[in-house]
Simulated scan of single mutants.
Amino acid sequence: MFDHVVFGVSDYAASKEFFLKALEPIGIAIISEGPLGVELSADGKSSLCLRRAGEKPGHLHLAFTAENREQVQAFYRAALEAGGKDNGAPGLRPNYTGQYYAAFVLGPDGHNIEVVCHESEV
Rank of each mutant, 00 (worst) to 15 (best):
M1K: 02
D3L: 11
V5R: 01
S10T: 06
A14N: 15
E17G: 10
E17R: 15
F19R: 03
L20V: 12
L23N: 09
I28Y: 08
A29V: 12
S32H: 12
E33L: 14
G34C: 03
L36C: 01
G37D: 15
V38C: 04
E39L: 09
S41K: 07
D43Y: 00
G44T: 07
S46L: 07
S47A: 14
L48F: 02
C49S: 04
A53T: 11
G54V: 02
K56I: 10
P57K: 10
P57H: 12
G58Y: 07
L62D: 05
L62R: 06
L62G: 11
T65P: 00
E67R: 11
N68T: 01
N68H: 13
R69K: 00
Q71H: 03
V72C: 06
V72W: 01
V72H: 02
Q73A: 14
A74S: 14
A74I: 05
Y76E: 04
R77D: 14
A79F: 01
K85H: 06
K85F: 00
D86A: 02
D86K: 00
D86P: 11
G88H: 10
A89F: 03
A89R: 07
R93S: 01
R93N: 07
R93C: 06
Q99P: 00
Y100C: 04
A102N: 11
L106S: 10
P108H: 05
P108K: 07
G110N: 06
C117T: 03
H118E: 13
E119R: 15
E121H: 14
